[in-house]
């Protein structure tokens, strides 16, 4: 299974689109990509798990780490994990990651940039 983190733009914000299995083997790639993106302290970023096919506890851990790094950088983070993506959404729900990580069901739920950065 190919894994890939692609730099993209979602809802007008710099984004990382995660394809493939996000697990102990691949999570460091997402962490590195997010670290690079956060280095310039952007106002907001998006991590898109729509094309992600698997999420384990290491992947979940990485999402928590990114959330904390974003908070420290003053960056508003949104993680897109559609309910329809069960392999990803189920572990998120089991771990109750959404208590910490700002999870949205779709990119459409992310407020436009003009709406400000006070979401979640």
């Amino acid at each position: 299974m190919l894994f890939d983190v692609e730099r993209s733009t979602i809802a007008g914000r710099p984004a990382l689109t995660v394809r493939g299995e996000l697990d102990i083997a691949t999570a460091p790639q997402l962490a590195d990509a997010a670290e690079a993106l956060l280095a310039s302290s952007p106002a907001a970023i998006v991590v898109d798990l729509t094309p992600t096919v698997f999420l384990d506890s290491s992947g979940a851990h990485t999402l928590v780490t990114i959330t904390r790094r974003a908070a420290a950088a003053g960056t508003v983070l949104h993680v897109v994990a559609p309910r329809a993506n069960r392999p990803v959404r189920l572990p998120i729900d089991l771990l109750q990651l959404d208590t910490v990580v700002p999870i949205v069901d779709s990119a459409g739920e992310i407020p436009g940039i003009a709406a400000g950065h006070d979401a979640t």
């Binding site: 928590v64 109750q96 990651l97 208590t99 910490v100």
Partner: peptide, 9 residues
């Protein structure tokens, strides 16, 4: 009766 993972909150 489930709660969040340890270390989240």
């Amino acid at each position: 009766g489930r709660g969040p993972a340890l270390g989240l909150l």
